[in-house]
Design a protein around this nucleic acid. Structure first.
Lengths: 344, 344
DNA sequence: GTTAGCACTCTATCTTATCGAGTGCTAAAG
DNA sequence: CTTTAGCACTCGATAAGATAGAGTGCTAAC
């Protein structure tokens, strides 16, 4: 592909991203100073179409980038676009000051992402994988009600109420906690199940009932499936995009957003461990998400990938902008999470 | 309003709810056996219109219920509609078996509600008000990282990581937990702040740093604003409603759904302590939510109102159905929550 | 009080005409 | 060989009738 073709393709992609209208030869010749006449551009465009980079919605209308065209643009032509000082400040202040717990941080992130791109933002939090047991605590809440709290080494905390006989004293619960902690320290479920249960029950037959319930929670915690949670933000923002003047399009989009599983796959699937992944239109395997692109990037917690943020938008999305926002955002998100979770 | 007028109004409301088309005199005479001719019905309709119960979208089209008409229908004409065996079973099984934690219960509730009504479901969880302190536990996680866990008497559990000096031993943390628990038992923040801090610091000057951080979390927990969280479900479902063939309508709706604060008010505001509240179209004060109705009902946890579920739909919604679903659902929701939270 | 008959209204839908942006091709110019 | 002006042609979008039919209100008869 010679240089002038590249320039023409770039012009088409940029203009289409900006206006959402098929772009004609005249427009290119006038707005993007290539120094040649529309007729020449038309020839180039005919070539580009033959090569599969652009398409015509119908004979005798302007050209529109094809999936392949977007791909070429993203891979070779797109210029990195830095955020303005204000935008950076906004992200930093929103994430650094205003959020004190994980949920808030996630939510803010989604809102920011959507607001700054005007597409739909998705934030995926992958449940920290099944860790090992760290601590259990039985807390007497009121007569015959006890709370079981289980802490995992990965920082997850689970709790549940259980019914306990009135005869049990607070000190009993304390002892029970102690014993459990001593016995179960650092184990995975398998080892607990196989080696220790008998021993435990033998020692503490008296409180068998409580033990059962407590162990049930511990078991649940340990076995917890890596269940992903997804936060969506700014669905409404996206409707300002001209493609959604058509109701059918809106429906398609909302039906995509309704399929949580699909979204999770889009965000987590086959993404490299760092940096932004872009999937354009039909490139998304299996599902028929033609017309939409997904830009996704993982975020880290102390070096480990613990989730991903993403943007869902029409193929005609402002990739440069989205990428730069996402880049800056994930970095700050990681930092914010470290602060909130690890107490740094 | 004489009996025949009521019948005509009932017919109009029912038919319009079912078909979304303005209903004409002929339709009523044919489908609803009033035993009179269309001309008679026309006369009645003219009267009803004069009284403000129905409206004409334009001269010479069928009639459509006005807000006042819906209100009359809901208050006097609507027949209670029981759920089918299958529907009841669905609700019960979904809520009783599948959900093990609060989040899941809430989510399932929303999904059920939306799915069974085909409108948008909202589930509001009001943060249990600021309770009193119950228990604190310092758990050593790894070198220089400690988790602070705070349990409130209302069952809320908060946790946070803090940085601790390497010199601190697990046994120190345990002692610290003990002392804190002994001192702070059952107090609200005010009393803690005013009376006990000095004493504490005096006793435990050595671990001042940890104390600070732990107290910070306790303070946060106690001071926690009654922050409401809202779960939305089935936005997509609603688009199957014929009113949303128009894009503008979709936008209006999504913009309503975007305003969390508004939604919270709709759900919690001025609702009686039990039973279903219905707000039709313009009846919703201040905001311009003409064209939409909200049906809401609180749900309980051991007798206290702890949240609300609601449905947002076009004024032309199937109130009878929604009410019966909601009625059955809130009861089961309360039960499910008691099971999950209180361990019954 | 009820109803048949009828003229009238208004929307929705279909058809037709027109406009104009944009193309591809041809032939001339560089 | 590349570029460009000129021109006929295509096709969607918009506007302007034309038509059908559902529904009304009114009048006069039952």
């Amino acid at each position: 592909m010679d240089e002038r073709k590249q320039k023409v393709l770039l012009a088409i992609v940029q203009d289409y991203i900006a206006t959402a209208e098929p772009v004609g030869s005249r427009t290119i010749a006038k707005k993007y100073g290539l120094g040649v006449s529309p007729a020449t551009i038309r020839n180039e465009m005919a070539d580009l179409e033959e090569m599969g980079y652009i398409e015509q919605p119908h004979t005798s209308s302007g050209r529109v980038p094809s999936v392949r065209g977007y791909r070429y643009y993203v891979d070779y032509l797109m210029k990195k676009q830095d955020l303005t000082r204000e935008e950076e400040d906004l992200i930093r202040s929103e994430l650094e000051t205003k959020a004190r717990d994980v949920g808030k941080v996630i939510q803010r992130t989604g809102q920011l992402l959507s607001q700054m791109t005007s597409y739909t933002a998705m934030v995926l939090t992958q449940q920290l994988g099944p860790g090992t047991f760290k601590h259990v605590q039985l807390v007497p809440m009121r007569l015959s009600q006890t709370m079981v709290i289980v802490v995992m080494d990965n920082g997850a905390v689970y709790h549940r109420m259980i019914e306990t006989p009135d005869s049990i004293l607070a000190s009993d619960l304390d002892t029970l906690s102690k014993v459990l902690n001593a016995k179960l320290q650092g184990l995975t479920m398998e080892s607990i199940k196989l080696t220790l249960l008998k021993e435990l029950y033998f020692e503490m037959g008296k409180h068998k009932h409580i033990l059962d319930l407590a162990l049930e929670l511990i078991q649940d915690s340990l076995a917890l499936k890596k269940e992903d949670k997804i936060y969506l933000g700014g669905v409404f923002n996206m409707l300002t995009q001209p493609e959604f003047h058509n109701v059918e399009k809106v429906k398609t989009m909302l039906s995509i957003l309704d399929q949580e599983k699909l979204l999770c796959e889009l965000l987590s699937g086959e993404s490299r461990d760092e940096g932004v992944t872009i999937r354009i239109g039909g490139e998304i395997k299996d599902y028929d998400i033609k017309d939409y692109s997904v830009v996704a990037a993982p975020y880290m917690l102390s070096g480990r990938k613990v989730g991903a943020v993403g943007v869902l938008g029409p193929t005609r999305m402002d990739y440069a902008k989205v990428i730069s926002v996402m880049d800056y955002l994930t970095k700050n998100l990681s930092r914010a999470l470290e602060r909130v979770i690890l107490g740094r």
